[in-house]
C-alpha cells in the first residue's frame, strides 16, 4: 500500500501542493505526467531522499514520513538504472543484504533466486559498463528487490529502450509483481506503458496536481 496524504513539497523554485494518492497493497500503480511536472521530486520524497513541507507518507500501513530512506523498506529504480560502476552484477544484488548483515550462504541463495527471476544468470560477474540498456534495468530492478521491500518505485524505467526490449521488460515487470506481490509505483510519460501495466492510473498535471484516470473509460477507448 502506498498512501500520500496532503503532501506538500518545496524543491527550489518548484512546488508540489497537497498531493494525495492511494495505491492498494499488491497493485501496480502507474503515474503519468509531462516532463517538468515534478514526478522525480515526488519519487525522491517518497524514498526519503527529500523532505516534505507537510503531509504524510504511508507505506505498507506504516507511517514513514520521518523515517530515513534505508528504513522505509522501499526499492528504488531510478531513471537509466544508476548502477555502481565499480561493482559486479553479483555485488549489486548482494549490497543491500550485506548491509543487513545476512550470512554469505543466505546472500548466495537470494542472489541465485533473483538472477533466476530476472534472467541475470550469465551477467553475474560482469560490470555495468558492459551491460545493455535492458540488462542494466534488470540489474537495477534486482538490486531494488533484493531485500524484499514492500514497495517498489520505478522512475521511467523503460524510456530509451527499443521496442523489443521494451516489450520484454513490460512482461518481466508484470511477472515480478505477480511473484513478489510488491506494491508498485511506476512513473512514465507513455500512455501505452500505463495501459499495459497499470492496475490503477494517475495523471500528474503541470501544476503538481494529481488526477485519477477512470480505468473503464480508458479501456473502453482502447
Amino acid at each position: 500500500m502506498i498512501t500520500l496524504e496532503n503532501l506538500t513539497i518545496q524543491a527550489g523554485d518548484f512546488r508540489l501542493n497537497d498531493l494525495s494518492l492511494h495505491i492498494p497493497t499488491g497493485d501496480y500503480g502507474v503515474l503519468m505526467g509531462e516532463t517538468g511536472s515534478g514526478k522525480t521530486t515526488l519519487v525522491e520524497c517518497l524514498c526519503g531522499l527529500r523532505s516534505q513541507e507537510k503531509g504524510k507518507i504511508k507505506l505498507a500501513g506504516r507511517d514513514v514520513t520521518y523515517l530515513r530512506p534505508g528504513e522505509r523498506n522501499i526499492g528504488y529504480v531510478p531513471q537509466d538504472g544508476a548502477l555502481f560502476p565499480n561493482m559486479t552484477v553479483r555485488n549489486h544484488l548482494a549490497l543491500p543484504l550485506s548491509i543487513r548483515k545476512w550470512k554469505p550462504e543466505a546472500i548466495a541463495q537470494r542472489t541465485e533466486q533473483l538472477s533466476d527471476l530476472l534472467g541475470l544468470g550469465s551477467l553475474l560477474d560482469r560490470f555495468p559498463a558492459t551491460l545493455s540498456g535492458g540488462e542494466t534495468q534488470r540489474v537495477a530492478l534486482g538490486r531494488a528487490l533484493a531485500f524484499s521491500p514492500s514497495t517498489l518505485v520505478l522512475d521511467e524505467p523503460l524510456s530509451a529502450m527499443d521496442d523489443h526490449t521494451h516489450q520484454q521488460m513490460v512482461k518481466l515487470l508484470k511477472n515480478v509483481q505477480q511473484w513478489t506481490s510488491v506494491t508498485v509505483l511506476h512513473i512514465t510519460h507513455s500512455r501505452e506503458e500505463a495501459r499495459q501495466l497499470a492496475d490503477c492510473q494517475l495523471v500528474m498535471r503541470q501544476t503538481g496536481h494529481l488526477e485519477p484516470v477512470n480505468q473503464q473509460k480508458e479501456s473502453a477507448r482502447s
Binding site: C47, P69, F84, R143
Partner: peptide
C-alpha cells in the same frame, strides 16, 4: 559523480558513511 547513485545506496539501507565508503569513494578513486 552523479548523486543518484548515493541516493540509491541510501534507499538500499546504507547510512551516509556506508554510501560514501561503498559507492562514492570507489568512484572518486
Amino acid at each position: 559523480i552523479d548523486t543518484r547513485r548515493e541516493k540509491v545506496a541510501l534507499t538500499l539501507g546504507c547510512n551516509k558513511a556506508q554510501a560514501f565508503r561503498l559507492v562514492v569513494l570507489p568512484e572518486a578513486k
